[in-house]
Amino acid sequence: MQSETARVTTARESSYRVQYPNSKRRDVKVVALDALSASLVDEVSREPWNGAKFFTSLSFSTDSAPGTTGEGLKAWLKDLAGAANDLVEEVASSDFVVVVTSAGEDARAVSLIADACALHNKSLVALVVPGPETTDAQISESMTHLRPFARMLVIASGADYISAMLTALRA
């Protein structure tokens, strides 16, 4: 006699899988950390998304320089319309956060975002995008900055990968 497992793993049985949605909309925040990645993020943001929010820069008050944690954290994310949004609030209302940085650019601001993520237990995915002229040493430097903060650190090929990843994650 055929086992239960053999019977239920046919193509025909696959067609009986329930078709109800199995997850809710995600709130994903995508933050560019420098001017080059801002233009990539801007490009990607034009595709249709399920609620992902895109930011092109991070600014912080001088008493909240990288290293500041907890209540003292005062930083703002600039959205595509140019408006400033409170970093901690944006992170708090997210499901996870993606930061994008160009290899060789200053990525130190990531520590503020990581602090906000730590405050609200959100995971952080970091993408490093090499430019056409980027050297291995520059990639390395960016990776070293990002490593302590990200659960997943990816060297991405460019805007096409950013959008492939966000699509895969239902952003």
């Binding site: 996870f96 952080l124 995915v125 659960r151 997943m152 990816v154 990968y161 990843m165 895969a168 994650l169």
Partner: peptide
């Protein structure tokens, strides 16, 4: 998928 599935996402890509 979640962030840590990026290996799979990138291979497909």
């Amino acid at each position: 998928l979640v962030g840590t599935d990026n290996g799979i996402i990138m291979a497909r890509h």
